[in-house]
Design a protein around this nucleic acid. Structure first.
Length: 270
DNA sequence: AAGCTTCCCAACCGCTCTACG
DNA sequence: GCGTAGAGCGGTTGGGAAGCT
């Protein structure tokens, strides 16, 4: 900010892979002077690149402390957990993985983890189908609503991220399991509190009720009446879709976003 | 060995947000 | 309040490497 438009009148910038000489120029300049205003870096460092390209090269490759090479099992699990909670917020995810860049994590996700998750999801689906067919004969009437909801969600065409992930979808509380809530006032290993929306904290989220609801073939602990809007906007959209499709019932004319809760029988109450 | 396909990763592109004049 | 420019982010692409036929 506040930088002079130094790049005006310099339309030709080199593109493509960086040469070792270019790397040296950039590294030496930044280590000596700091990057300051990125748009002025290439000129001062004697590079035929634009500031944006220099910034990216520094962040993703030249910056000290970068970890290269294969991701560890623990890093992989961290990525999976945080991606499930945050979605494609690569920069936020990278903050929890020292030495890894958002670009690296993003590439790793697209080239490896995404497929792994898809495969796991497929296996999970087959297991659910297997379980459903073997237990249907013994199901009593008290379970019929749950079965209905379960079948309904399986047939429902979810278009959001929930159906792209193999990890279990937790209605209303995708990223707030009971355990996380219980440990919310302590620091967790991933710094999950930081992973929550920056504008909302657990303290801001009032949690009045917990229940189990049938969903996607399994029972998930579910928080109701989460009042921090940032925390459940995606779930709210999800809930609206379920209401529209008749899987959840609510009092007509009431704005779902104002408040909601869910009882053990899977019916939403406003 | 040669040609083809797939995978991986570095880099680019376009968009949004923010600070400044 | 508005326009402009820089910073940052996520999606996408291009090219080289590796694997396969």
């Amino acid at each position: 900010m506040g930088c002079q438009p130094l790049e005006k009148g310099k339309p030709k910038h080199k593109k493509g892979l960086w040469s070792p000489e270019e790397d040296n120029k950039l590294r030496n300049y930044i280590l000596k002077h700091g990057h300051g205003c990125w748009s002025s870096v290439p000129i001062k460092a004697g590079l035929q690149r634009n500031g944006k390209s220099c910034r990216l090269r520094w962040i993703n490759y030249l910056r000290p402390g970068l970890k290269r090479g294969k991701f560890s099992k623990q890093e992989e699990e961290t990525i999976l957990t945080l991606h499930h909670m945050l979605g494609n917020k690569w920069s936020q995810i990278s903050q929890h993985l020292p030495g890894r860049t958002d670009n690296e994590i993003k590439n790793y996700w697209h080239s490896y983890l995404k497929k792994k998750v898809a495969k796991a999801k497929e296996m999970d689906f087959h297991n659910q189908m297997k379980y459903a067919s073997s237990s249907s004969d013994t199901m009593d009437s008290s379970n019929s609503l749950q079965k209905l909801a379960t079948q309904g969600t399986q047939n429902f065409n979810f278009t959001n991220e929930a159906c792209q992930s193999s990890l279990p979808k937790l209605l209303f509380a995708e990223w707030l399991s009971l355990d996380q809530v219980n440990s919310a006032n302590t620091v967790d290993s991933f710094g999950l509190r930081n992973g929550l929306d920056q504008n909302s904290t657990l303290e801001e989220a009032s949690i009045h009720d917990m229940s189990e609801v049938p969903f996607g073939g399994g029972y998930h602990r579910c928080l109701a009446n989460i009042s921090a809007p940032e925390m459940f906007n995606s779930e709210l959209k999800y809930a609206n879709e379920m209401v529209e499709n008749g899987f959840i019932h609510c009092v007509p004319g009431v704005d779902l976003s104002s408040n909601f809760s869910m009882s053990n029988d899977g019916i939403m109450y406003i």
